[in-house]
């Protein structure tokens, strides 16, 4: 993809309220109501996504009204049903798992039965990205970019052990230890590779969670794209300073810290 996504029409993550539950118990104030108070999971979210955790389930109406009257609850329920019933997948293959992913789309397993079998080659038209395979240092920035190019609300299915932890290649000098180091994941499907049945279960589970308005994107220790000039100056940065422009996007891997 050659162009960057910079402008958005419907608002960015931090402009939206944090509340993603449509329940009665919580009043959905437009301000952040302290994800820290929500427990461990939410605080990790906070760490990952900044204030205003997961805004993918919020509607503009909700944003405008600022509370949760009956009609909006119904509307939210409907929207969640919509998002959970139908999704376009990003046609995205990395490694071994993509073979099983293709089998999941194809004749015998037919993921399209669940309304989730239309692969779109352009990330602009996709809702779900299945990350099927090992992510290595050279690819991670590109994958992050592809993820950023998808429109909200977007969901991530991480497929296979490599995207859970690096899998059998975890000890490799070049291997990212899981997809969550780079992008938030909604569902993990373990296996090396997972059988198509497992992937179908994963997608069905994702649909169920979306329909119920739940989501928990957690990133353990994110590698982010940042401008080279913003990096902390250390030996490595000094060494590369001659080769890389200040405003070039880079991803810095601290291998010693990743688990």
């Amino acid at each position: 993809m050659s162009s960057n996504r910079e402008t958005t029409e419907t608002g960015t993550a931090d402009a939206q309220p944090t509340d993603m539950q449509f329940g009665e118990a919580r009043s959905a104030s437009t301000d952040s109501d302290g994800p820290a108070a929500e427990g461990v999971v939410e605080s990790t979210q906070e760490a990952r996504m900044g204030s205003g955790a997961d805004s993918r389930f919020n509607s503009k109406l909700r944003n405008a009204f600022g509370s949760s009257p009956f009609i909006l609850t119904k509307f939210d329920k409907f929207m969640n049903w919509v998002r959970g019933s139908s999704m376009f997948m990003l046609q995205f293959g990395i490694a071994c798992c993509s073979i099983e992913m293709m089998h999941t789309y194809a004749v015998k397993h037919d993921l399209d039965r669940f309304g989730a079998g239309v692969p779109r080659a352009s990330p602009r038209q996709a809702d779900v990205i299945i990350v099927p395979g090992t992510i290595v240092s050279k690819f991670a920035p590109r994958m992050k970019r592809v993820y950023d190019q998808m429109p909200e609300p977007k969901f991530v299915v991480s497929m296979g052990s490599c995207t859970v932890s690096g899998g059998p290649f975890q000890q490799g000098y070049n291997v990212i230890k899981g997809a969550e180091e780079v992008i938030p994941c909604d569902i993990h499907v373990p296996g090396c590779p997972p059988r198509p049945e497992a992937l179908i279960y994963g997608v069905a589970k994702l649909q169920e969670r979306i329909a119920e308005g739940e989501s928990a994107p957690v990133t353990v220790k994110p590698y982010e794209l940042e401008q080279f000039g913003d990096l902390q100056r250390d030996e490595l940065v000094e060494h590369l300073a001659a080769d890389i422009d200040e405003d070039t996007l880079v991803m810095r891997y601290n291998w010693a810290d990743s688990t």
Partner: peptide
């Protein structure tokens, strides 16, 4: 930085990869 299959390669050193 470094040549990973060399004998003195330190795998834990940080690396920077560009998106240009």
């Amino acid at each position: 930085q470094g040549h990973p299959l060399g004998l003195d390669y330190d795998q834990d050193r940080p690396q920077i990869v560009t998106l240009e």
